[in-house]
Design a protein around this nucleic acid. Structure first.
Lengths: 209, 209
DNA sequence: ATTCAATGAATAGGCGTTCAATCAGTCCGC
DNA sequence: GCGGACTGATTGAACGCCTATTCATTGAAT
């Protein structure tokens, strides 16, 4: 194409792009709602169309097919983690312990907010093809890498004893996921704040020098 | 019915029962193999029949339907955990630390052996109806209750500081599951023994008085 | 007049489940 | 022993249902 060079703001192209974004979001939101209720395999494209207030055919204008919708839904959820956890940690100052506490609390908060979506990402991610799975792994590692970095900084400064930093990051991630995965169990006894507090106490005690 | 009172060993009834068990196992093994490869929804009953070396119709003689096959496969896997973990712990003597170490090692060993099956149980258990899910929750709690008991014993005897015992049990379970869930990540850096060792070090350090 | 978003009926394929038919032992009267 | 019911295991083609995807057509904006 390469038609117009430097299209003006508010141009036809810009409006079109905005409409595309709106449509994709409508579809993603509808698909997320339905999948949370029924899971991927029980979600019919007709149901997504109805929930999104459009026709089936239109979905295929914005996504390649059912599996691409799934991939987009999962990436959408994981993106929230990737955006918020590192942000919370760098806002927490220089103390590794404070960073870990802030990052873990943020992680759990996002998980709590989107509990159903987080579970969805968990259980449906193996439905994706290899490329989709690789993308998910990348997003997840980007999310927890700040944990690893904070632990290493703490070891270097002597606040923490020498422990495998990546394993600690892995454990913190598991504990955050655990709030969603085993909510039927843990959630019956603790609220979110208490869970975060108790888990932090344990995980920090495990590594303190 | 109530035909024969006290049927002799090797009677018609006994042989029939043995055959039923053989058949159910053939079906379960075939279904497990296929689901590990493709997942529940992509598993067709025709494929199970072929893999098990029998006809489709026969499966319906031994199981009520596809979902009942799934339930049996999952229960079969969780049963291995429930059998081995408590056994390892009570064989480990009276010291709570030794008990936790033995139980955790056994848990991880079974997970490692049946990694694909454990993941399967994880992924597909939400496909079950309410009764099936309740059974799974029951099996899981039975498996990890010895962890809780050991932690409480340790607190009572002063080896451990006062921590929420059920949360520690929950964390140990997560760490064991983590070996399967995040094997693509952790397994690249550690072997099973090293993982068990490192996790135990962290989890025990977290609770030691 | 042209472009492109939007529709939704029709297509095509897959699969869980059923069931009438077949097969293989077991029992019993002779 | 022996043949002929009888019982229960086994088969697999056929049925019925469901849904992802397509595409000829319509509608609206430029």
């Amino acid at each position: 194409m390469l038609s117009r060079v430097s299209s003006p703001v508010g141009s036809r192209e810009a409006r079109a792009e905005a409409r595309v974004e709106t449509r994709r979001r409508q579809i993603l939101d509808a698909a997320t709602r339905i999948m949370i209720r029924t899971g991927y395999h029980e979600m019919s494209m007709q149901a997504v169309a109805e929930d999104a207030g459009m026709s089936v055919g239109l979905i295929y204008q914005y996504f390649g097919g059912k599996q691409e919708v799934l991939r987009a839904v999962i990436v959408d959820i994981l993106d929230a983690f990737r955006a918020e956890v590192p942000a919370a940690m760098s806002a927490a100052g220089d103390d590794p312990q404070a960073q870990l506490a802030a990052g873990f609390a943020a992680f759990c908060a996002v998980i709590d907010e989107k509990r159903a979506g987080a579970l969805l990402a968990y259980r449906e991610s193996q439905t994706l093809d290899a490329a989709g799975q690789a993308e998910i792994i990348r997003l997840e590692q980007e999310t927890i890498d700040p944990f690893r970095a904070a632990v290493e900084a703490g070891i270097a400064s002597g606040v923490f004893r020498p422990v495998p930093a990546d394993l600690v990051a892995h454990n913190l991630k598991l504990a955050a996921h655990g709030w969603a995965l085993k909510h039927w169990d843990v959630g019956a006894r603790l609220d979110l704040a208490a869970y975060v507090q108790a888990e932090l106490d344990l995980h920090l005690a495990a590594i303190r020098a």
